[in-house]
Design a protein around this nucleic acid. Structure first.
Lengths: 247, 247
DNA sequence: ACCAGTCCTTGACGCAGATCAATTGGGAAA
DNA sequence: TTTCCCAATTGATCTGCGTCAAGGACTGGT
């Protein structure tokens, strides 16, 4: 057999991202098996990928674009419970339905695996099951970290926490040196930020302006952000530990 | 081989609870293996079981008593991120240290398994790994459910949500008919409730009084609670769906 | 009986963030 | 260029919950 290059296959064929469900121990057979059950789907900004409660017949990863996981009460109050960036995993192996609405906030491409065969592969491949457990533990840590943000932080600290997460996530993707300015475009509207932070969009806007005035961030236009001093931002977030991760 | 009664072994020998990590597919050999690496530990009310960051050399379940998972900021603000009731699992297979403080809020008995041998067993026993993934997904759902509570609910709704969780959890343990009054003793101080709900103890106290005045709950002394109408309580929680579970 | 300690309740007041409302800015279509 | 549209900003006011403070109800110890 003509063994394919692992480094390419690790990234799941032609996906430009590294699937988190795929790990260093995956061998060529497993990768071929994944290749056979995978397909791509694209969604437009604003489209709902899955409604809470719907049957979900795939798992997969975000390839490009941003999606959110949200919960809504009958009276319309909504809380975002997860932010899905490229390479993040979506799906609940072993579960029937979706627990939350998944919404594309930008144009979105997903790399999906049909669920049943994926579960079969998982069941006969211990290290994939192991990897999924690790990923789920990561998400649990992130969710609990966020509980502290929602329950105990001020509006200013909440905003700083969110910016820190996005900045860190973004910086880890780019190959820049670690202590340069961090520059990125916010992938969320003020309203989406508010739904993530348990605030109103007005409060988000005011605190963004305040952080800008105080030199914690630079803002060009509405979305383009520069972090001149990551340490300062993390102080503002009330977050000494450089832990703090999300999704 | 003299196969032991599964129904007894399912409960892990002499533990009075059913370990969630042990499932219907566990066979006698696996149960024996667990039996060999298990031990009990007891803690007094108020004692800290594990400090965040500490090396954790066991996993296990709560046998009796209540423990909490909490995070604390440097300035002392604390947020509870999990409530551990009997049969709940503690531990992060595959992880080195503890991510949160675990504190006994009442006298507590834990049934522990030494971590390394437990992980070995998990690694060679797919259905135990599978069970752990399921448990972790449950906890993730619970954490995300709680994010909605923390981010978007009012103080009154928060209190009602917490009471509903404890009531439901309690009712599922007792063999009573489903539509009787639900009666239980609150396992938490007002301060612990506040730390769970992102409130102050004074607000918790006021809202408890308000719910009592409005007949949503009956209070005898400080801790003894009767829920005359579970549906009413869940309305107050802003929670139509009878989902809603926690840890 | 008395005291000390802990937990809880209740009141008075202030403030962070919500609500309501008006205006600005910037990109796309005509 | 003008117009439209939607995201975002900013201001004015309101309010739910936090803060500070005083006191009550148990419990266990002496």
């Amino acid at each position: 057999m003509n063994a394919p290059s692992i480094s390419v296959q690790m990234k799941c064929g032609d996906c430009p991202i590294r699937h988190r469900a795929v790990c260093a121990r995956c061998d060529a057979d497993e990768l071929t098996a994944l290749e056979e059950i995978k397909y791509y789907r694209t969604y437009e900004a604003g489209q709902t990928v899955i409604w809470s409660g719907d049957q979900m017949n795939f798992v997969g990863s975000v390839v490009s674009g941003i999606a959110t996981l949200t919960q809504t009460m009958e009276d319309g109050r909504t809380q975002m419970v997860g932010l899905l960036l490229p390479s993040d995993f979506v799906g609940r192996p072993g579960r029937e339905g979706a627990a939350y609405d998944v919404v594309a906030t930008t144009d979105l491409t997903m790399c999906c695996f049909r669920k049943k065969p994926f579960e079969d592969l998982m069941n006969r491949t211990p290290h994939i099951a192991h990897r999924l457990l690790e990923m789920t533990l990561d998400e649990l840590d992130a969710a609990r970290e966020w509980m502290l943000v929602l329950g105990r932080k001020t509006a200013r600290e909440k905003i700083a926490s969110l910016l820190a997460i996005i900045a860190r996530r973004d910086a880890s993707l780019s190959p820049d040196g670690p202590q340069d300015d961090i520059v990125f475009d916010l992938p969320l509207t003020r309203e989406a930020m508010a739904d993530y932070l348990g605030l109103t969009l007005e409060t988000v806007s005011r605190q963004m302006s305040a952080l800008k005035k105080d030199g914690v961030i630079l803002l060009e236009g509405k979305r383009h952000v520069t972090i001149p001093n990551m340490g300062r931002l993390m102080e503002e977030a009330g977050d000494d530990s450089d832990g703090g991760f999300l999704v």
